[in-house]
Design a protein around this nucleic acid. Structure first.
Length: 554
RNA sequence: GCGCCCAUAGCUCAGCUGGAUAGAGCGUCGGACUACGAAUCCGAAGGUCGAAGGUUCGACUCCUUCUGGGCGUACCA
């Protein structure tokens, strides 16, 4: 609908230029938006006011000319008004709205999808937590945000791949191996003191027990360095397995797990350094190799190879992004915790040095979750072993409520997660409000079936019977769903979907309480049954994008 | 010190890229089931959009300064 109106406006502007009412100026994007006030029509455009400055004419005059030259050949417009300082307000014919319902009927589960991103390969990289311990609640927000962004892009026609980058080559991994080593030796007996700089969590003891099962006592005879090396890989493998299971239970499935060590195995990091050297982006200073990121707007240059000859994490990360583009991704999206924001200019410098345009990389920051228990902050540290695992939250709150909770806020806003409240609130969590609407419609359809009515096709109803204001509001909301997904994909904002779900459910509940669907009137019953079934389809499609189940009963 | 993010109803948050009279949920108060599910609905109260300037036809939205909170400022990852 939005697109149709924008096209009408563009045509009209061309006509006006042809008639020399307007002069040809800069090509401006024609904006069409939803007015807040119902009296201002179904859609409104401010194009006349935007044009006014370059045309040096009264915006109302321009608006009048554009409105007067609109060629509504499809006959979708009830009327056009010029209002206020120069808004052009569109009032859509009821029939035009209702005809959109046919698309729901035709497309079913695919309703809402578009091909806006057709032909483009996108990779969404998220979570990417080091395998040094189980995922905790702080990772959950990033996980669900990345997952849903990927789903939305996929629904918009992009070819999407979900990827998890495993940082398994750094010093943190050495600490993990060392931690397990000491716990293992404790098991072997011998009063060894457990170092303070090691991971304190109980899961390390569990890992040590697994080591014992696997290797017996044999390892304790080995050289410490060799043993730690073996244990690092062993522990990381088990932890990654647990992470995969937890994510799976959370409804997050990755297409690929990419290991940092892969980059070293195939000399990816070395090749990257050669490329940077070849392009003159690096220099040596104080025994280290530096990448001149300041040339791309960073505040200071960054080390890529340390004095001791070891490449930095940053070097590996650029190599990783180089690898992503080499795999053919047109756009790469990184979902990061907000504590990494200082890293952004560096990363952009990296991809630009590789000859990529800045637009090939999108970084979505997810603000950290502030964990509370009865209003009091809970310290979270993997090293100290103080954290609430994702698994525990899932067990207490459930997947649907947890996911919906995270999706109700803009990823850029801070979020308090109170463990006690989460549990108490789960009974009046908004997710149930939406799911209830879906289940309620399922129930209506069951009741209708008992009385001999099946859900008709669009061609089988008299659409003219859908004349109530509440019905029209529902139809409009349904009609806006495809635009919503497109906007959500463009802005990478999943929360728009949850707000839409709430609104659609709310409108439906209001309608349900005021009017009956199944009545003695055959024709009316059919029309209304079709309408609520369409609402149900949209709710189901929206919830599927969010990774939340749409129950028939609850 | 410098940089990024946040500040909107008592609380938790939206506000669609600068639009018209700033909206929801929770909470509070008052109402609605002998008909399709009351996990629902209807109504009321609740605001100097952190503060002060600026940009323009028009600002919650953009710019500057300030206040308060979070995060970051490694040859860690």
């Amino acid at each position: 609908m939005k697109k149709k109106l924008a096209a009408l406006l563009r045509n009209s502007i061309e006509t006006c230029i042809g008639k020399e009412i307007l002069s040809r100026g800069d090509i401006l994007p024609v904006g069409v938006e939803l007015p807040r006030e119902g009296a201002h029509g179904d859609y409104a455009s401010n194009i006349a006011m935007v044009l006014a400055s370059t045309q040096k004419t009264n915006p109302r005059k321009i608006a009048g000319a554009i409105a007067g030259n609109i060629d509504d050949s499809e006959g979708i417009l009830e009327k056009i008004e010029v209002a206020g300082p120069g808004f052009i307000n569109f009032f859509i014919k009821k029939e035009a709205w209702i005809s959109l319902l046919e698309e729901v009927d035709m497309q079913g589960d695919l309703y809402g999808e578009s091909d806006a991103g057709r032909g483009k390969k996108v990779q969404v990289e998220f979570v990417s937590a080091n395998p040094t311990g189980p995922l905790h609640i702080g990772h959950a927000r990033g996980a669900v945000t990345g997952d849903v962004i990927a789903s939305i892009l996929s629904a918009s026609g992009y070819e999407v791949s979900r990827e998890y980058y495993i940082n398994d080559a750094g010093t943190q991994m050495q600490i993990l191996g060392k931690s397990v080593w000491y716990r293992y030796r404790e098991l072997m007996g011998g009063g060894i003191e457990f170092p303070a700089d090691c991971y304190q969590g109980d899961y390390i003891r569990d890992l040590a027990k697994k080591v014992q099962e696997q290797y017996g006592e044999s390892l304790s005879q080995s050289d410490e360095k060799d043993a730690i090396s073996i244990l690092t890989g062993f522990a990381a493998g088990i932890i990654m397995e647990g992470i995969r299971d937890d994510l799976c239970a959370f409804g997050v499935i990755f297409d690929r797990y990419f290991s940092e060590s892969e980059l070293y195995r195939d000399d990816g990091v070395m090749r990257l350094l050669d490329e940077l050297r070849g392009k003159g982006h690096v220099f040596e200073d104080a025994g280290a190799l530096w990448f001149r990121t300041t040339a791309f707007g960073d505040e200071k240059d960054r080390v890529v190879v340390r004095e001791n000859g070891e490449p930095t994490y940053f070097a590996a990360d650029i190599a990783y992004h180089r690898n992503k583009y080499a795999r053919g991704f047109d756009i790469v999206i990184d979902i990061w915790g907000a504590d990494h924001h200082g890293y952004i200019p560096r990363m952009y410098a990296g991809i630009q040095a590789l000859g990529k345009n800045k637009s090939a990389l999108e970084i979505v920051l997810v603000q950290l979750v502030n964990l509370l228990r009865r209003g009091k902050p809970v310290a979270m540290s993997t090293r100290a072993g103080e954290f609430v695992t994702l698994r525990e939250v899932l067990d207490e709150v459930g997947k649907d409520a947890a996911r919906y909770n995270f999706l109700m806020r803009r990823s850029n806003s801070h979020l308090d997660f109170d463990l006690e409240l989460a549990k108490e609130q789960s009974s009046d969590n908004p997710v149930y409000y939406v799911q209830y609407a879906h289940a309620r419609i399922a129930s209506i359809i069951r009741t209708a079936a008992e009385r001999g009515h099946s859900v008709p096709r669009f061609s089988g109803i008299d659409a003219g019977l859908l004349g109530l204001p509440e019905e029209l509001t529902l139809v409009k909301l349904i009609g806006q769903f495809p635009e919503l997904i497109e906007g959500s994909a463009q802005s990478l904002e999943p929360h728009r979907i949850t707000f839409y779900c709430n609104e659609l459910a709310s409108t439906f509940h209001g309608y349900y309480n005021k009017h009956r669907v199944v009545t003695e009137d055959e024709g009316l019953t059919k029309a209304r049954l079709f309408l609520v079934a369409a609402v149900q389809t949209v709710l189901r499609n929206a919830l599927r994008l969010l990774g939340v189940t749409a129950p028939e009963k609850m």
